[in-house]
Design a protein around this nucleic acid. Structure first.
Lengths: 149, 149
DNA sequence: TGACACCCTGTAGTCACTATAGGGTCAAGG
DNA sequence: CCTTGACCCTATAGTGACTACAGGGTGTCA
């Protein structure tokens, strides 16, 4: 299987597959005479694993750790377990924070009279207030509102 | 007011203030004889505006648009209004998605027996399944689980 | 005079890709 | 045999919103 077919099967771009190889998440496959990468079923499974973890919004570092667990199947699975647990915590934190943002945005929306000029618009005036310290995300480790995919 | 005091007052790093200037969000301030940036109250207010918007997870582009509205106070405020409305939609989408992730992570957690070896661990086996197509975030415009602040 | 906190510019690094440039390989059709 | 086109290769740079240096200058105090 060449890289294009692998990419199609797992629903990623060809460049992303090569990127995962560079990052050490996918092992280097055999090459054809013409220097094309040749993949096997095991590569496809590993790529599915990676994409599944990414769909759960884990970082490549977290995925690397899980893959290392997987590659050593006699180890106890506590580490993988702890990683999932920690990640779940981050997702929950992020949901809580976005809920607060949502409430504030809804509050802002109510302040706009709707027909006025910008100068009297409650939204823009409200936004000029300073933020109290922990309003920024800090090290919550759960991403912002705007993803880049 | 020099850059350090401005940064402290608004709770940002000095480098971030200079970055906002480079990006055209903060106007270039006057300079002292020794070439230090000298800020006034108006700069601090504008910086608070920016930080408040960032705390609401708006992009710098969205903030630029709001600032342009603010700088032209006779315009109707529809544009600012629409921007807030759209942003609220993105936040809601992101919350919905994270809730799905949370449910899946909780499902994963239940699959781990707790004491076993990695080879029998339900978590790692489950993660090897392929993802069905729209499991990735696509252009939801609301960020991942891991912020970089 | 020296120490120190602060400031300056410019550049590179972060993350997880994505895009582009500039080429090579391979099978089918004319 | 030659061309077209789909696919592949490497290497490099760009994204967003910062952050972190390196290598210097300024200002104040003892």
């Amino acid at each position: 299987m060449k890289i294009g077919e692998l990419a199609r099967r797992s629903g990623v771009k060809v460049e992303t597959v090569r990127y995962y190889e560079r990052e050490g998440l996918l092992p280097e496959p055999a090459r054809s005479e013409g220097n094309y990468r040749l993949y096997r079923e095991a590569h496809a499974e590993r790529l599915d694993f990676i994409r599944h973890c990414r769909a759960l919004d884990m970082t490549l570092d977290e995925i690397r750790a899980l893959l290392a667990c997987q590659d050593d199947p006699d180890q106890p699975c506590e580490e993988a377990d702890a990683l999932i647990e920690a990640h779940l915590g981050h997702v929950e934190q992020r949901i809580a924070q976005l809920s607060r943002l949502k409430a504030e945005l809804e509050g802002l929306r109510r302040r706009c009279a709707g027909q006025g000029k910008v100068g009297e618009c409650g939204i823009l005036n409200e936004l000029s207030q300073p933020v109290d310290p922990p309003a920024t995300l800090e090290h919550a480790h759960v991403g912002g509102v705007h993803p880049r995919r």
